[in-house]
Computed example of a mutant assay.
Amino acid sequence: MKSSVETKNKNKKDKTMIVRIAPVVGLALLFPLAAAAAPLAKECGPNKSYVIGFSQANFKEPYRAHVDHELQRLVKNYPQFKLVIADGQANDNTQVSQVENFLTQQVDILFVSAFEAAPLTPAVSAVYDKGIPVIELDRRTTGEKFTSFVSGDNRAIAHEAGLYAASLLPDGGDVAILEGLPSSSPAIERLEGFKAGISTNPKVKIIAVQPVDWMQDKAVEVFSAMLQAHPDIKLVYTSNDLAAAGAYIAVKQAGKLGQVKIIGTDGLPGPSGGIRAVAEGQWTATYVYPTGAAEALDLAKKILIDCASSVPRLVTVPTQRIDASNAKELYAKGE
């Protein structure tokens, strides 16, 4: 028979064991294993079909048409995808309505290039808030409610153009800038980037800056007036190839061919693109502004087909300078 002392010692050990075990059980209840991150898309997987709604700023600008063409060409590599492109018609109200329609139709993912950033932000944010992934192409809205932004680095591209322009004028001279649409993020970033690049040559003086809203006819009108007011302009930087084409017309009409260097931005292929203009000596250079089409579709694949729980917030696509050293070769290749 056990003594009372032995019994007390046994009870003490049992209580000690209980005290030691209890906290472990409590921790398990308080901190369960973390759940895996949810997919970005409500519906996803390789055995379904998906609709991509793309709200394009407009169909007028050649660059916009180039983006549309690239998307339509490359989407054929994804049998599960149906691409629907809406023309924003360079009108805020029209584009807002189209984004709202895509929301009503419950597209599986929204691609968007904003005509103007601020007016479109609430509509894009509403799509995002409904759990539909949003890929912004080229032009940002003002909010943070988007899944990923795919773009060339406008500021870096323009900075490169500014450095190149500075090197073309070692003895200095007057320079003009034809800005894009001032309320769009690319126009702002390209203006700032070019100014920063060309400022590396203190002999260069920027004597005129004016927006032409990306349009050729306005570029002709504005640059013609600039040439009259400042007849010693030696170089003009334009925010897109269409404006560069307008600048060339103004230079030709003023009888100044060969006297004014023209630098564009876009580097578009085809008979009416910037690559041909450089190849034929009309412009000094242009910089390729990538469409981001391949990158946007790859993101859509990851989100919709691969059920990704995260994708890069920013995807930057590199540029290339088109000048006399490579323009003819690239144009012959159809690039």
Score class of each variant (00 low, 15 high):
Lys12His: 13
Lys12Pro: 05
Lys12Glu: 10
Lys13Phe: 04
Lys13His: 15
Lys13Val: 14
Lys13Ile: 14
Lys13Gly: 08
Lys13Arg: 09
Lys13Cys: 06
Asp14Gln: 07
Asp14Gly: 10
Asp14Cys: 11
Asp14Lys: 13
Lys15Met: 05
Lys15Trp: 04
Lys15Gly: 11
Lys15Pro: 00
Lys15Ser: 06
Thr16Ser: 14
Thr16Val: 08
Thr16Pro: 03
Met17Glu: 06
Met17Ile: 10
Met17Asn: 15
Ile18Ser: 11
Ile18Asp: 13
Ile18Ala: 14
Ile18Glu: 07
Val19Met: 06
Val19Leu: 09
Arg20Phe: 12
Arg20Pro: 03
Ile21Val: 14
Ile21Phe: 12
Ile21Pro: 04
Ala22Pro: 00
Ala22Leu: 04
Ala22Trp: 00
Pro23Glu: 04
Pro23Gln: 03
Val24Asp: 15
Val24Phe: 03
Val24Ala: 10
Val24His: 14
Val24Asn: 15
Val24Gln: 08
Val25Thr: 15
Val25Trp: 15
Val25Asn: 14
Gly26Arg: 11
Gly26Tyr: 14
Gly26His: 11
Gly26Gln: 10
Leu27Gly: 06
Leu27Glu: 12
Leu27Pro: 01
Leu27His: 10
Leu27Gln: 13
Ala28Ser: 10
Ala28His: 05
Leu29His: 12
Leu29Val: 14
Leu29Gly: 09
Leu29Glu: 02
Leu30Phe: 06
Leu30Thr: 12
Leu30Met: 04
Leu30Pro: 00
Phe31Asn: 11
Phe31His: 06
Phe31Asp: 12
Phe31Trp: 03
Phe31Lys: 06
Pro32Ala: 09
Pro32Thr: 15
Pro32Asn: 12
Leu33Met: 09
Leu33Gln: 13
Ala34Cys: 04
Ala34Pro: 00
Ala34Ile: 04
Ala34Val: 09
Ala34Arg: 13
Ala34Gln: 11
Ala34Met: 01
Ala34Tyr: 04
Ala34Phe: 03
Ala35Glu: 03
Ala35Ile: 09
Ala35Gln: 09
Ala35Pro: 00
Ala36Met: 03
Ala36Lys: 11
Ala36Gly: 07
Ala37Gly: 08
Ala38Ile: 02
Ala38Pro: 00
Ala38Leu: 02
Ala38His: 09
Pro39His: 02
Leu40Val: 05
Leu40Cys: 06
Ala41Asn: 10
Ala41Ile: 03
Ala41Thr: 07
Ala41Leu: 05
Ala41Phe: 02
Lys42Tyr: 08
Glu43Pro: 13
Glu43Asp: 07
Glu43Cys: 13
Cys44Gly: 09
Cys44Phe: 01
Cys44Asp: 04
Gly45Tyr: 01
Pro46Asn: 12
Pro46His: 15
Asn47Cys: 13
Asn47Glu: 07
Lys48His: 11
Lys48Pro: 03
Lys48Arg: 08
Ser49Leu: 04
Ser49Ile: 08
Ser49Arg: 07
Ser49Thr: 14
Tyr50Glu: 07
Tyr50Asp: 05
Val51Cys: 05
Val51Trp: 02
Val51Tyr: 04
Val51Thr: 06
Val51His: 09
Ile52Leu: 02
Ile52Pro: 00
Gly53Glu: 01
Gly53Cys: 01
Gly53Ser: 02
Gly53Asp: 01
Gly53Val: 01
